[in-house]
């Protein structure tokens, strides 16, 4: 495996802050907006963004939840064994709200399709937006586009994009992993 660091350190933090400012442009004080991180890896992004927003807008009530999409995936019974879901933590109703779905890496778009279906169990939102820290461009299987993007990455299917977080992995970093040709 060959590792190429795409983003880390201060640049990573600047990217998160830019995403927060872009969100504020569209959502003002977030009174009508909820942020939903997609389990398992999207929740770290959603938590970080929510915390940054709370620092910038200390008087606002920023609502953030974690959502499991495992039971809504379209590849159940098409892979070796079933995926074991993590926990959904959504202590709010999204009926009539603006929802910002968040995931660390957007690739085929299938996770987002499942997330949109899973989300309906919590109500009918007024509007849904998508925020992805990494957009692996030109690799979509479905007509899904993000509204907010941290960085664009051009990659091929055999490569992998891995996002690490200070809170859980020790450092903020986005790495592109490639198989070395023999």
């Amino acid at each position: 495996m060959q590792n190429l660091t795409l983003l880390d350190g201060q640049k990573f933090q600047i990217t998160i802050q830019r995403l927060c400012r872009q969100l504020i442009e569209n959502h003002n004080d977030f009174s009508e907006t909820v942020l939903i991180g997609i389990q398992p890896r999207g929740i770290y992004l959603a938590k970080r963004v929510a915390n940054e927003l709370r620092k910038i807008l200390p008087d606002s009530n920023i609502q953030q939840g974690d959502m499991v999409i495992t039971f809504y995936r379209d590849d159940f019974r098409r892979r070796g064994a079933p995926l074991i879901p993590s926990e959904t933590k959504m202590d709010f109703i999204i009926e009539g709200k603006k929802v910002v779905l968040m995931d660390d890496v957007l690739w085929s778009g299938r996770t987002i399709r499942a997330a949109m279906e899973a989300m309906l169990a919590y109500g009918r939102p007024q509007k849904v937006e998508l925020l992805a820290l990494v957009d692996r461009r030109y690799s979509r299987h479905l007509p899904i586009m993000p509204d907010y993007v941290g960085i664009d990455v051009d990659s091929i299917a055999s490569q992998k994009v891995v996002v690490s977080w200070k809170e859980t992995d020790g450092e903020d970093k986005i790495v592109l992993l490639s198989e070395i040709e023999k």
Binding site: V68, F71, Y72, S86, E87, I93, E95, A121, Y122, G123
Partner: peptide, 16 residues
């Protein structure tokens, strides 16, 4: 996790 599903506020089923 399925107990969470059964307590979802609007749709208490999944398409699996």
């Amino acid at each position: 996790r399925f107990k969470d599903v059964l307590n979802q506020p609007q749709i208490r089923k999944v398409p699996s």
